[in-house]
Amino acid sequence: MGEQIAFGLTAAGIVGCALLVVLLKNAFQAAVALIGTLVSVAILFVLQHAPFVAFVQIIVYAGAIVTLFLFVLAYLGERALSDPDRLEHFEVFSWITILVITAMGAIVMFTTALPNFHTVPETTEDIGSPTALGFAFLREHLLPFEATSLVLLVGAVGAVVLAKRAVMAEGGR
């Protein structure tokens, strides 16, 4: 019961903050609402007995990545949209799309027999502790894990090279 209440509050937090991210006019405030969403998702991980993932979620996403967003937003400052929105006349299409996607989602939800959808799922063995995650990453799925880190490294190096080229083009160092 307690878990269901906690889940309800967390889910409301996720959806509410996500709506704020989209609806708030001020980009800086929207980024702050994004922190709320990410922290709520972390609480969801705690409810799933995965505290390690939960705190990594807060450190990496809520901590570092949103900090970078705020850093950029703070430097760019608040700029009001000066041009009139050219897509305003086509707004009706976006509403149609939203309705269709919602309807499709609802149909799929109610016609598909998801396992454990109406029953309480059995608790699995330990999958969320640091030990379990370590074994999963470095024993069972070592190759995908290392491949992912290599891809990230390539991305980081690529970003540095591109930025350097842009600086050089402007006659910088």
Binding site: I35, V39, A42, P51, F52, F55, V56, I58, I59, A62, G63, A64, T67
Partner: peptide, 10 residues
């Protein structure tokens, strides 16, 4: 320890 790092980020 991760909790401390997470909260310092917040």
């Amino acid at each position: 320890l991760l909790l401390v790092f997470a909260l310092s980020g917040i």
